[in-house]
């Protein structure tokens, strides 16, 4: 690890003031992404400003919804009774991610900002425009099994690894930030960006902007997260899927669907959502929606499997969310969220 200086932030404003003027300064919360990448020398900040002790660790009511402090741990958020019962998609996404230890350490602010798990990004000996702009993309012609099938560019085919982000993308969540230019609110789908020519930029946050909370608006519908991994637990998603359905009697009033593991950001599928709105849930409808959702997927050499896998996953997620098929485990748990998980027995 390259040497760096370390400071503990005393307030959100002080944290911003410490990071904003120094281009190579960074925040650290749980450290599970930041320190991992610093050990690989993928990241080499000159200053780490520790925001873990800031008073951003509460979950509170907010205009019929919930305000989740950026410093709340993944574990605390997942196990919070209001999150479990009203936004099970959030608990499921969190609990199907990483391990107990990492969830205890990880924060809600840090999770959506974790960097890609693209192996070429993580290896400083490889060409990677995200790590070192202008060097090329080794994944494009390399082993691109875990890479994007939507929204990629010639400069970058990386995917975003966060499960939580996929869940937040279907809840109309809002991100509160404070920064050098004051505070602002970002609609969650606008937090992450597509790679384009500037894949080094994962998000629309300016340098030095600190997430203080993630706000969930009121939601009374059904929500669910489903994830396929290479092993039963403690692995990133190959493909995942978050669904939120607002119901009107027996009909779907509004559907929101996001796919994970397929793009540089949580991938909403508006065409499929439009197809579901106003309809009665049925397997036929869901199959058609799953077909539409992947219609314009552009696979690379090694990741075409994500298309049938994703279609089947989305179909199953819609069936389970609407109640046409039972969940594989209690709502809000890793068992509900895992395809081929630890269940059984």
């Amino acid at each position: 690890m390259h040497p760096f200086n370390y400071q503990r932030a005393t307030s959100p404003a002080q944290a911003v003031a410490a990071v904003a003027p120094a281009p190579s300064a960074a925040f650290v919360a749980g450290g599970t992404s930041q320190l991992d990448l610093m050990k690989e020398e993928v990241l080499r900040p000159s200053l780490l400003v520790d925001v873990a002790a800031l008073p951003l660790k509460t979950i509170g009511a907010l205009a019929g919804g919930l305000q989740l402090g950026a410093g709340v741990s993944n574990t605390a958020a997942a196990m919070h009774p209001e999150v479990l019962t009203r936004y099970p998609v959030v608990s499921e996404a969190l609990l199907a991610g990483a391990s107990t230890q990492i969830r205890n350490m990880a924060s809600l602010g840090g999770n959506p900002l974790q960097r890609t798990r693209c192996p070429y990004f993580r290896d400083p000996a490889q060409a990677c425009n995200k790590r070192e702009p202008g060097t090329g993309c080794a994944a494009l012609k390399g082993i691109n099994k875990v890479h994007a099938i939507f929204g990629a560019s010639a400069a970058c085919v990386a995917t975003h690894p966060s499960d939580l982000a996929v869940a937040l993308a279907v809840l109309d969540a809002q991100v509160q930030v404070v920064g050098p230019a004051g505070s602002r609110t970002i609609a969650f789908p606008d937090l992450h960006r597509l790679p384009g020519d500037t894949p080094q930029q994962d998000t629309t946050l300016a340098h030095g902007e600190l997430i203080t909370s993630i706000d969930l608006p009121a939601f009374t519908g059904r929500s669910h997260y489903l994830k396929v991994r290479e092993r039963a637990s403690y692995a990133f998603a190959l493909v995942s899927c978050a669904v939120a359905l607002d119901m009107d009697g027996k009909k779907i009033k509004r559907a929101r669907v996001a796919l994970g593991g397929v793009a540089h950001k949580p991938w909403r599928v508006p065409a499929a959502e439009a197809m579901l709105a106003g309809k009665k849930p049925s397997e036929k409808l869901f199959r058609a929606a799953a077909e539409v959702a992947f219609a314009d997927a552009k696979p690379l050499e090694h990741n075409a499997y994500k298309i049938p896998m994703g279609r089947n996953l989305l179909l199953r997620a819609l069936l389970e969310t609407s109640g046409l098929q039972p969940l594989q485990g209690p709502a809000g748990t890793a068992f509900a969220a895992s395809v081929g998980g630890m269940g059984g027995e």
Binding site: Y6, G30, G31, L35, T75, Q101, I102, N104, M105
Partner: peptide, 13 residues
């Protein structure tokens, strides 16, 4: 009191 990974925690943290 909670399990955590000491390899991804700095001593100063």
């Amino acid at each position: 009191g909670q399990s955590a990974l000491s390899c991804l925690t700095l001593a100063v943290m």
